[in-house]
Design a protein around this nucleic acid. Sequence first.
DNA 1: CGGCTGTACTG
DNA 2: CAGTAC
DNA 3: GCCG
Length: 401
Amino acid sequence: MAPKTTRNQSPPSDPQGMFAGLVVFLVEKRVQSRRLQIWKQKLVQMGATIEDSLTKRVTHILAMDPEALLQQLGSERLAHFKGTVVVYQWLEDSLSSGEKVSEDMYHLKLEADKSSNDYISSDDEPPKPKKLRSSSPDDLAHTSIPKTPESPNKDQITALQSAVPYNPPDLNKNITQIFGKLINIYRALGDDRRSFSYYKAVPVIEKLPFKIQSVDQVKDLPNIGKSMQDHIQEIVTTGKLSKLEHFETDEKVRTLALFEEIWGVGPATALKLYEKGHRTLDDLKNEDSLTNSQKLGLRYYDDIKQRIPRHEAEEMEHLLQKVGENVLPGVVIVCGGSYRRGKASCGDLDIVITHPDGTSHKGFLPKYVKQLKDMKFLREDLIFSTHSEECTYVSVTHMLS
DNA sequence: CGGCTGTACTG
DNA sequence: CAGTAC
DNA sequence: GCCG
């Protein structure tokens, strides 16, 4: 879980280099990948930072020509960009002259505007006939409280508070959705390692600011190896993945994957249930070998699978903070996880509870939980344990809206 | 080819 | 301790 | 599955 999100490359960057302070986004279209690689390396060496997506920190966009630029970013995203857009020649000339040349002669401008002929996609989720969002989001809260009263994690708190929500464009859903299914399937089969590989590949693909049309565009991305490239190739050309098709026609694989979506059910339990002859969730209604957590996971199957829209997560955070302050003045409650990372929707809500004086948090969680239960925010305990100073709590919540 | 995080909770 | 989740 |  440790966010190693920094993609620090090996070549030592020189903070005094000619590109110091620049944050660059490279439009990769119409660029030889080998050349791109060299450029990236040079930029980093000379003190620049390279962004994988068009974040608000980006100061410079580099592109071959207006078409490539437009094709990868779209005019509306570009319209909001306030930085400098130049052609790669600027970089070439800077490198050859040994000093950063003025951008003036290299500005890349879009041809007038070809009106709004882009694309207005109402991008919903096709493979989800699920309709009613009767708003019963689930909530999994995990709290961990520093062991030492010194509470040396002020940095963590400020880091949490200063995180900037940014949602990269979600092109390439065709690929990430298929990979997402493979993640579940391999995990259901007990192949966690392979599952994790796909798990790591997905965010890499999600961060791409363009739609993948050729293998060349992904051939030297991290966590994308030979197999992934082949799969991507097949998906972009045929629109599907035969490997996945094969899995999905296999009843055992299908069933194991289904059972494993139940909270508390892993590969072993899923297999046992399958061997007992169970094939559907309904078959499990009367299966009393399930643990408490698993029964709850089954009962709230649909609710737990619901994602929480960001704005609702925001409301929940405020509510949680208000109640927390009420139970113990001064307590600090912040959301972490996917919410903190700025996702548009969250599968759960991760909560971190701390207190500035480092000791007052003792015994806070039970009282807090009780309060939240009384007001019908929390519903059912999935896990609830308290050691002397570290507490863990995972629960299903119910929000009436 | 071998490693791929480590830890806490349930029953 | 096995299984599970994070 | 990917990586070293």
